[in-house]
């Protein structure tokens, strides 16, 4: 397996026919065309986010703002910043817990198979595929019921939302870790066991040190999906002081007057953390995929 960045020496062989000049030009034209296609919506968001409410209108969508106005961004920031923090205190614990839970489950299902574990795995996986809007009512009823027997309320709180995301994160995180761990040779595990390592010893000394690529994939995946999730957030947290940013973003639009410029600015602000995660960790995401984290 080669490194991701593919040093030139290694790649020469594959590219030799394509080195014809016009061939390269076509490649770049296609790539640039697609890049423009992907960037087009961002342009619209930025340009209209910089306009004032009076100026923003459908017919002048591509025109740059007549005067640079940061008002929309300020307004969006004012309204969104408390919810931004809520999102952070939702996403960080939920992502970390569900990653570790997935890692543990994956480890058990890959390296500690027991009778029936081959059946349990697909059963766990199936949870990934349910349409979430269909289980909202039983979910709310269950959270309320369970909250009575616990020291913390589950319904209406970030804690409850964290729990929900951890539970519905189990299938995907388990899948990624199990597939990744399946590619770690059993010999390594056996050798550690010979040396007297038990369940936790093997996990700590053999599995965990090798887990970084899978963790990156899982963390990115969970981080973005939890950050962007709307339906659970809006149904489970009713107190605006507890609501994550997706709900607040939606609330920037009233039922009767929508300030598109503020919405666009807000959308950009709300997307910043996930964009940062992708730009900073994108390389490792690919590396994690390469290492087999998301391969069937």
């Amino acid at each position: 397996m080669r490194s991701l960045e593919a040093p030139a020496v290694q790649r020469v062989a594959r590219g030799h026919r394509m080195r014809l000049r016009w061939g390269r030009i076509v490649i770049y034209i296609v790539l640039v065309a697609f890049a423009l296609f992907y960037l087009m919506p961002v342009y619209v968001l930025v340009v209209n986010g910089l306009k004032s409410f009076q100026e923003v209108s459908l017919s002048k969508m591509w025109a740059p703002p007549s005067a640079l106005s940061l008002r929309s961004f300020e307004k969006a920031f004012d309204k969104l910043s408390p919810n931004f923090l809520n999102s952070v205190s939702l996403v960080v614990p939920a992502t970390l817990f569900s990653s570790f839970l997935g890692s543990l489950n994956g480890y058990i299902l890959a390296k500690w198979k027991f009778r029936g574990s081959e059946v349990l795995f697909p059963l766990l996986l199936f949870g990934m595929f349910i349409p979430y809007q269909s289980i909202l009512i039983p979910l709310v009823q269950f959270l309320r019921w369970a909250g009575q027997y616990l020291p913390v309320q589950l319904y209406g709180t970030i804690t409850g939302l964290v729990l929900v995301h951890i539970v519905y994160g189990i299938p995907i995180t388990t899948l990624i870790f199990r597939n990744y761990y399946a590619s770690i040779p059993n010999d390594l595990v056996e050798a550690a066991r010979m040396d007297g390592a038990g369940f936790f010893g093997v996990y700590r000394h053999v599995i965990l040190p090798l887990s970084a690529p899978a963790f990156v994939v899982v963390v990115i995946w969970q981080f973005t999906s939890i950050w962007n999730e709307f339906l659970f957030a809006v149904t489970i947290t009713s107190n605006p002081a507890q609501q994550p940013i997706t709900v607040a973003l939606q609330n920037l639009a009233g039922s009767q007057i929508v300030e598109w410029n503020v919405q666009m600015a807000g959308a950009l602000l709300a997307a910043l953390p996930t964009l940062l995660v992708y730009i900073l960790l994108g390389r490792y995401f690919l590396r994690g995929l390469l290492a087999g984290a998301l391969r069937g």
Binding site: N239, A241, N251, S255
Partner: peptide
């Protein structure tokens, strides 16, 4: 506590309200 939920003429808001009322948790 201003529990406002946006949505075209209250569509999303009604979903939240109904889920809450069914769950026995009225505002």
């Amino acid at each position: 506590m201003n529990a406002a939920v946006a949505g075209g003429a209250g569509a999303a808001a009604k979903a939240v309200l109904k889920t809450r009322m069914q769950g026995g948790n009225p505002p």
